[in-house]
Design a protein around this nucleic acid. Structure first.
Lengths: 193, 193, 193, 193
DNA sequence: CATGAATGAGGATTCATTCAT
DNA sequence: TATGAATGAATCCTCATTCAT
């Protein structure tokens, strides 16, 4: 209809998310983000009042993207175990990027939790999405310790991502995903359905 | 002869290490470090040419501290399994700090690997110490897959630390350490000694 | 025919006048004014070419309001002395606001006279209204020094307002108004009418 | 000895005071101050953490200057009345500047009291100096209403300054000072000494 | 070696003003 | 006329780094 050239805000968030993933929050400058999004620096402030706001939008974007992904996994696969394995596969598919910059959720959450301001809840929310989703899968396997299993799963992935990026070894992700698949298969629980 | 007042450099590195652990590398300023170490700002440059140098010294300090710790574990405990369990216990003892700032090695290494400059080898070195030590323990258990086991162990810890700090849940570390102890105990290998 | 939605310009000027009174010209932003007047920012420029124009309109509004007030005083009261005392009373009635933000004419005029641009005549005009009116009253008392008396009166009020706001003491206005009333009563002149 | 090229901080404050007097606080930019003081902009922040700090220093400088002036008046003149008249003379001597920029204390205090931050006490302090000094003089005249008389005197001066600058009439100060001198002479009190 | 001070290149943020529709 | 969005020049402020003594 009228208004803004579409996607400007989206482009800013996307650019910010990418740069934050690659270099971290602190070294990412608004001028850089603006340039990457092809938006004049001054205009950035029409969409976001402060840098912190952009960071918040980045976290939210990551969260939504993660939610969408998980929803799709849930729709595409019928049983909890296949879903969990599909998740593991999906994460392993990003091995190359992971070896370069770590887990996009984990490294962001880690940096956020070191901040003095109240950004921590955002970090918690982000990781919570992943854990809660996994937990629901384990619940469908009728496991009493569903939460713990979910945490174990996510922790295993995050740990692998830390090592993959730290050691710069993409292969590490593949081996880990195999191990996790086997572990999932070995779970005793049975689907309720 | 003209001897530098002892500890000055050490104080700087210690202060820097602590601040870097708590806030990350980027938000930590030289002025802040100098103040915390009670060293005049101008004097910092007598000991370190650049901020990057201080960061390097911090990594090295962490590395030496880790090496010393591992050496002591090795000296105090006779069998690989008790050593590995002692390591796990030690890490779990820092649960409260870990829930606040994550793993001192992992978060530092993660931030370093995102840097464009050549700091990455430092990160690799740091995590390598831990992994190599664990690997040697598994080798003494005569395990062919010693390296993989070591990586699994360290990854498990790093993942737990990421979640503990992200979710701000210290307890998570305790549960994880129990799980890891059990896993170590369950390892089939036998010590060569 | 296409008539502007009524009051829009007035709302802008009113909002601007209020904000300028409370915070001063410089710290008052157009965006803020527009928001307070519930007018889209872009639209402001249909009514005023520049911020300076709005300030001019504010001064004019203050001037008109002052003229109206003085006219009413003149209509309501028959003798110069009662008129002058009514003026003093009226100003004293605003003691609370005055203690917070000073005299709405004086502080505005003061800020304007510091500006490099040619806003100064506006300031002169504003204060002139008050002085001229008082002067006319004293002229009706057949005082040769009517102008000086008028200036003394207005100066006394402005000075009181400066102190009231600076010291944050509303009471100061009341005491001063009593003093001025007495001074007016003590004036020797007699009305010509 | 060593250290800074002397007076740098003083030069900054002096430049700031002058510019603040001429244009007001808000329009005075740190870059301008720095330039006027011949100090690199970045260096300003070595002496003052924020712009507000500089403003604070300006107020304090004005306060100290006022205190010194008053102390000198007190030393040079023996009786309260001659002191008060000397004060009035001194203020009238600045008629030309006053007609351009108003009273250096009053306009500053007025602008400060409009600020939302806690700068108001500074304004109160500044005007308090003048009032308290005058009050002490009237006390020596054994006047019960010394405080009120002091306030009347200062208010009279501030009001005159407002009009002089607003109307751009330096002469106004001279006439007012004559009036005030006469008023002081007419005071009934007798010095205790 | 020590140190307070200096420097200047950014970096975040604001805001009057303009533009496209 | 109306309006959301755009623009870019300032402004305040930070900080690694250097310098003079």
């Amino acid at each position: 209809m009228s208004q803004t050239r579409p996607g400007k805000r989206e482009r800013l968030v996307a650019a910010a998310a990418e740069m934050v993933y690659r270099q971290g929050v602190a070294p990412t400058t608004l001028a850089h983000i603006a340039e990457a999004a092809d938006v004049p620096l001054g205009n950035v402030y029409y969409y976001f009042k402060t840098k912190e706001d952009i960071v918040g939008a980045v976290v939210q974007a990551r969260a939504e993207q993660l939610e969408a992904t998980l929803a799709e996994l849930e729709a595409r696969h019928r049983t909890p175990k296949t879903r969990l394995k599909a998740l593991v596969d999906m994460l392993a598919d990003r091995a190359d990027e992971t070896a370069l910059y770590g887990c996009p959720y984990g490294t962001l959450a880690t940096e956020l939790s070191k901040r003095p301001d109240g950004t921590n809840p955002l970090a918690t929310h982000l990781m919570g999405l992943l854990i809660n989703w996994a937990e629901r899968q384990f619940q469908q396997l009728v496991r009493r310790d569903a939460r713990d299993l979910a945490i174990d799963l996510v922790a295993a992935y995050e740990g692998a991502a830390v090592l993959a990026s730290t050691l710069a070894q993409p292969d590490l992700m593949a081996r880990h995903s195999r191990r996790l698949r086997a572990w999932i298969d070995a779970q005793p629980g049975r689907p309720t359905a």
